[in-house]
Design a protein around this nucleic acid. Structure first.
Length: 298
DNA sequence: AACGCGTGGCT
DNA sequence: TAGCCAAGCGT
């Protein structure tokens, strides 16, 4: 398999089969793309679409979000999960205003320095919002490259420098074509070369896939320990936050006490929410989302 | 470097 | 049914 063949096939497949996702439109701002990338960190596309539209209708540019409270960001985040992302996204907007005059930066190092923006998201914004030639490597791309190029059933759990190098070698020289290829690799991993049940009969590179050629071996070695949820602090945090999100004023501690019986665990979870900037005490007996203000009396 | 961090749909 | 999983990041 040559890289041009592989990349050309996947790119052509993408141009004919890409899902019509709203952040892929022609007039989508860098800020809107950044917001989509943060929301898509560990949250499925179908749940992100409506949240993204509502978020941008309310905060069409970074300065608007920066001027609002963390509490409103947490509420708008809804049930996308990992609500620390909402707080960081607002902090990101503040940093964009302070450091970059309210415009999303186009330099990789400046993007990486923003809160909540890591290796993947920085490269995704640079490529998809600004058309730069950078390898954009997420879990889908790692899996596609591991299978099709290396012949391995799956990639490692984290992005390593070697993954960036391997993906960079697949990119066309021309920046716009490289960005399109990155989107195409991600799409292929998301809808065809999936983790559980790959649809090889619909794959544009089945005939050149190293994993397919070697008989599609199953993964060996230690499988990653599955993430538990029931009974964890995360579940308790979610329950506490659910109450605070719905509240219109300070929430008495007694009401929070009702969401979880174990005092030690509940207190630990609440303290962690405070530590993470999601929640703050109002006085010695009540709490609210950070910066929340009571509804004005009509 | 492994772990903590939400949520809901799918098999 | 109860895991398993989904465009990661920060520590």
């Amino acid at each position: 398999m040559s890289a041009p063949t592989f990349t050309t096939r996947v790119s052509r497949w993408y141009q004919e089969n890409a899902r019509d996702l709203p952040w892929r439109g022609p007039d989508v701002s860098p800020w809107a793309i950044l917001v989509s990338e943060v929301m898509l960190q560990q949250t499925p596309v179908v749940r992100v679409v409506p949240a993204w539209q509502a978020w941008l209708a309310r905060w069409p540019e970074p300065a608007a979000l920066a001027a609002d409270t963390p509490a409103e960001a947490i509420r708008m985040w809804g049930r996308l999960g990992y609500p620390r992302r909402a707080v960081r996204l607002r902090e990101c907007a503040v940093a964009i205003v302070q450091r970059h005059g309210g415009r999303v930066p186009d330099r990789l190092d400046q993007l990486l320095a923003l809160p909540g923006i890591g290796t993947y998201t920085a490269r995704a914004v640079a490529a998809f919002a600004y058309g730069q030639r950078h390898p954009v490597v997420d879990t889908n791309v790692r899996r596609v490259v591991a299978r099709a190029v290396a012949g391995e059933p799956d990639a490692g759990p984290v992005t390593r420098p070697a993954d960036l190098v391997a993906t960079e070698e697949l990119l066309p020289a021309e920046p716009a074509a490289a960005a399109l290829a990155s989107a195409a690799f991600m799409e292929l991993g998301a809808v065809v070369c999936t983790a559980r049940a790959p649809r090889c009969d619909r794959c544009p590179v089945e005939s050149v896939c190293a994993w397919r050629a070697s008989g599609q071996p199953a993964p060996t070695g230690p499988t990653r320990r599955p993430q538990r949820y029931a009974g964890t602090d995360r579940q308790v945090r979610g329950l506490l936050l659910g109450v605070l999100r719905e509240a219109t004023g300070p929430v008495p501690r007694q009401r929070l006490d009702q969401v979880w019986a174990d005092d030690v665990q509940r207190s630990r979870a609440l303290a962690a929410l405070v530590q993470d900037g999601l929640v703050e005490p109002v006085d010695d007996s009540s709490f609210r989302l950070t910066g929340d203000t009571p509804l004005p009396t009509p």
